[in-house]
Amino acid sequence: MRRGIFLLEEVDFRPMNSRRPLEYLTWLTRYKREDETRETPALTSGMSIRSRDIDLAGAFYAVGITGHPQFKAVTLWECHGGWDGGWRQMMDIYRGVDDRLFLSDIDDLRFSAFSRPLGAVRGTPPLDEVTPAEFYLFESARVRPGAASDYLEAVRAERAPVLAEHGHRLAGLYEVLYCDTEAVTLWAVSLDDHLATRRARDAALGLDDEVEPDGRLLAWDGRARAFLDGPWRETLLAPFPGSRLAPRGLDGDVMDR
């Protein structure tokens, strides 16, 4: 089995305009649905690489009140076939620097975009086996150089069982590639379970006497510091209809998978 290779992209929109992320996510999910029946990859003017092997696994609106810049979109792309599949197809478009790379239907819509290649590690479930959720807990952790794999193994073995008891389903354990100082995790969760987990942590701190405390949530914070070497942040993502990780639509139909 080949290692799963993914691409994580965070997109900002400025000046602050609440319609821009909606326009972007609508455009993105629509054209990727068209790629599902494409037989061979192609470089096209205005839309860059078109391929069914470069799969929009998740398109999300970042929940700004949890720590994101306001009006931000996050996308998770799965490269089917790994390095020699979707990733190679993305790299191929840079050979010769074709002028079609510099044309886009969304020129001037985005202010900036930051992309990181991700490598799945042991314990990451196939995304097809992840039941779409109301929200996703997104963690980016800066670790000591070379400690990403050890950190993610500790998350898998020690933290995941605790969070599972609180309704968090592991969706991804990723080493950020081309660097040795960052790890990313992704968890599917309902709003009710997320809020209950926050309250259980507050109770463990002695700040909520109406719910049962779970000291293991605090213990993990101390355990994680053995691997960390900088900022650690968890934020929430709301899945946008039309991507594989989006839940059922309001009409009761399953969104395109």
Rank of each mutant, 00 (worst) to 15 (best):
L191D: 14
L191Y: 12
D192S: 12
D192P: 02
D192N: 07
D192Y: 06
D192R: 06
D193T: 00
D193M: 03
D193H: 05
D193G: 04
D193R: 07
H194T: 07
H194K: 02
A196Q: 05
A196N: 01
A196I: 00
A196E: 04
T197W: 05
R198I: 01
R198E: 02
R198L: 11
R199H: 15
R199C: 11
R199T: 07
A200Q: 03
A200P: 02
A200F: 04
A200M: 02
D202Q: 15
D202T: 11
D202A: 15
A203Q: 10
A203H: 14
A203V: 13
A204E: 15
A204C: 11
L205R: 15
L205C: 09
L205A: 06
L205E: 14
G206W: 02
G206V: 11
G206A: 08
L207S: 00
L207R: 10
D208A: 09
D209Q: 05
D209S: 10
D209H: 13
D209K: 11
D209I: 08
E210F: 01
E210Q: 13
E210T: 13
E210R: 14
V211Y: 02
V211W: 00
V211L: 02
E212M: 07
E212A: 14
E212R: 12
E212I: 08
P213L: 00
P213G: 00
P213Y: 02
D214H: 04
D214N: 01
D214R: 00
D214Q: 00
D214C: 03
G215E: 15
G215W: 09
G215C: 12
G215Y: 11
R216K: 08
R216D: 07
L217W: 06
L217M: 05
L218V: 15
A219D: 05
A219V: 06
W220E: 06
D221I: 06
D221V: 10
G222N: 12
R223M: 08
A224V: 04
A224H: 07
A224C: 06
